[in-house]
């Protein structure tokens, strides 16, 4: 089982952090994963993308993901303001792919684009991750964790324990910090939560909320190998 995932969001949302956490979770669960983050100068609301490959087999491929199985949209502006490196935001989505969008309501697309995507079996999944983060963790800064839970539910390549472990490693272990900017943000987060333990619990709760939502809506993707029709010249 192999998923190539493009995570698109804006600066400050923790897109790269989410990719690290999810990637680590898959590895913790015994799978393979690589990530390629991609962004310009660090600033809030500027486009940020991170490319995550998760698999049950060895991964050789490198570089950005142009033809993803899954696209995650962390912020509506990715769609409405074109904040993605390959526009339109759904560029390259594979047939029967999934587009997971953090938004309370559906974001309208041009009809011809939509009809092509629907014709190719692309599924749109909307999740109000920011609202869920506020509800569960009391801060919109946990939006990325809700989305980590949702993608874990969709791919089925991690376990709840593995994700919880990855969150712990992110906040406590191995001295891992995404960037200087994020580090200062983290101290804000830390002040909001009185205790680190509480911070962990809230984050894991956010992950589980996203995961439960994905499960409740039966979003899990199965990528059975389909028989490819014989074509001229093929062996």
């Amino acid at each position: 089982m192999r998923f190539n995932i493009r995570m698109a969001g804006v600066g400050g949302q923790g897109v790269v952090t989410a990719s690290h956490v999810f990637s680590t979770a898959v590895i913790n669960a015994g799978g393979e994963s690589t990530i390629v983050p991609f962004y310009g100068s660090e600033k809030r609301m500027a486009p940020v993308e991170s490319y995550v490959r998760v698999s049950s087999e060895q991964i050789f491929e490198i570089g950005e993901i142009m033809f993803p199985h899954i696209i995650m949209v962390f912020h509506p502006q990715v769609i409405t303001h074109g904040k993605s490196y390959t526009m339109p935001f759904h560029f390259g989505i594979k047939d029967n792919g999934t587009i997971l969008v953090n938004s309370k309501e559906e974001i309208p697309l041009p009809t011809d684009e939509m009809s092509i995507l629907v014709g190719r079996g692309v599924q749109f999944r909307y999740i109000a991750a920011t609202q869920m983060a506020l509800d569960v963790a009391g801060t919109d800064l946990a939006t990325n964790m809700v989305l980590v839970g949702a993608i874990a539910g969709i791919t089925g390549l991690a376990t709840r324990e593995a994700v919880a472990q990855a969150v712990k490693e992110r906040f406590l272990g191995k001295g891992f910090v995404v960037s200087g900017g994020t580090a200062s943000l983290d101290s804000v987060v830390e002040r909001k939560f009185k205790h680190k333990q509480e911070l962990l619990e809230k984050n894991i709760a956010a992950v589980n909320a996203g995961w439960d939502y994905a499960e409740a809506h039966n979003w899990q993707m199965s990528r059975k190998k389909e028989a490819v029709p014989a074509q001229a010249g093929r062996k």
Binding site: P37, D186, S187
Partner: peptide, 17 residues
């Protein structure tokens, strides 16, 4: 976040150096 972590430098990709 612990203080030691926030001192850590990162490369342009965000990986700790």
């Amino acid at each position: 976040m612990s203080e030691s972590e926030s001192e850590q430098k990162t490369n342009p990709q965000g990986d700790p150096i």
